[in-house]
């Protein structure tokens, strides 16, 4: 029972981190119906900026916020230079561009910060908050989950209660009509990219602040697959779906795989991809996503 609880807690921790990156993916998908393969690397770069700012002496939460701002500005620039000139309905060039960004950002981070793992500032208090038997729920897990909920609430309010959120939703629902209504489509999408990058940076910072992890340029390679799966699982255009998907992936990793004897431990990635395959085949819109109806 203790072991089960512990695994449940581990799943919660990982799941929250995946959910935060998945939220970023969902934001971009909502805006441009594009899956940004460079999202993980953008988040990684953002986390490195946070680390650099912290090394230069900024208090750690200030560093996180400034880092989010900087990566938001970078993302807005990337959107303006590389993404906007393409037809959003033609997926191939966009996928290729984001793959190119993936390579470039990863290489730049590796050149600037090298491959050596670096310690990330501890954003949350140490130790365990709750101990049930032998199972420990660390403060880190609680805060990671809490900040995940907080980000989602903030985004929910931003998208549903503010003017810019309204225009964002208008653009994601129908690009042409919202242009006709006088919404500036370009800047709105740019805002979406900046928002996504900031959320991603926050997610990567939380992820890297895990006491058992250190930050290095390839930290997001694995996490990206899990987050993509989480986003697809929850429905690519649903914010709360991202949380649901992230937690599901976290629990699959830590609970399901451990209790099914014929799946070896290292198979978490495989199990995730298989789950993705099943979900996409049976229910392409995910748990909470809107179904797309194609008109011919």
């Amino acid at each position: 029972m203790d072991l089960f609880l512990q695994r449940l807690f581990d799943g919660l921790t990982n799941g929250s981190a995946y959910a935060l990156i998945a939220v970023a993916l969902v934001l971009i998908f909502k805006a441009t119906t594009l899956v940004n393969f460079a999202q993980g690397e953008q988040a990684m770069l953002g986390a490195f900026i946070v680390l650099q700012l912290w090394n230069w002496g900024l208090p750690m939460w200030v560093a996180v916020i400034v880092g989010m701002l900087i990566s938001g500005i970078i993302a807005a620039g990337l959107e303006r230079t590389f993404i906007r000139r393409f037809d959003p309905a033609d997926h191939l060039p966009l996928v290729i561009i984001t793959l190119g960004l993936f390579l470039v950002l990863n290489a730049v981070a590796a050149i600037v910060w090298r491959y050596d793992p670096l310690a990330f500032p501890q954003l949350f208090p140490h130790g365990s908050a709750i101990t049930i038997g032998n199972a420990r729920l660390s403060w880190y897990s609680i805060f990671a989950f809490g900040s995940c909920i907080l980000v989602l609430l903030l985004l929910h309010v931003l998208l549903n209660r503010t003017k810019i959120g309204l225009s964002f939703r208008a653009v994601s629902s129908n690009l042409e009509s919202s242009r006709l209504c006088g919404i500036k489509v370009g800047p709105t999408l740019q805002f979406g990219w900046a928002l996504a990058a900031a959320a991603g940076t926050f997610g990567a910072s939380i992820y890297a602040a895990n006491p058992v992890l250190q930050i290095e340029p390839s930290i997001m390679l694995r996490a990206l697959i899990f987050s993509i799966t989480a986003a697809a699982l929850g429905g690519l255009d649903s914010l709360w779906g991202a949380l649901l998907g992230g937690l599901t992936i976290g629990f699959i990793q830590s609970v399901l795989v451990q209790y099914i004897p014929f799946i070896p431990n290292e198979m978490t990635l495989t199990a995730t991809v298989v789950v993705l395959l099943i979900v996409l085949t049976l229910r392409p819109s995910g748990f909470l996503g809107t179904k797309t109806v194609e008109r011919v």
């Binding site: 594009l34 899956v35 697959i225 993509i228 799966t229 995730t272 395959l277 996409l280």
Partner: peptide, 11 residues
């Protein structure tokens, strides 16, 4: 389209 790209990337 994209979903296929996701799945094959996972593969």
């Amino acid at each position: 389209g994209l979903y296929l790209a996701l799945l094959t990337f996972g593969l």
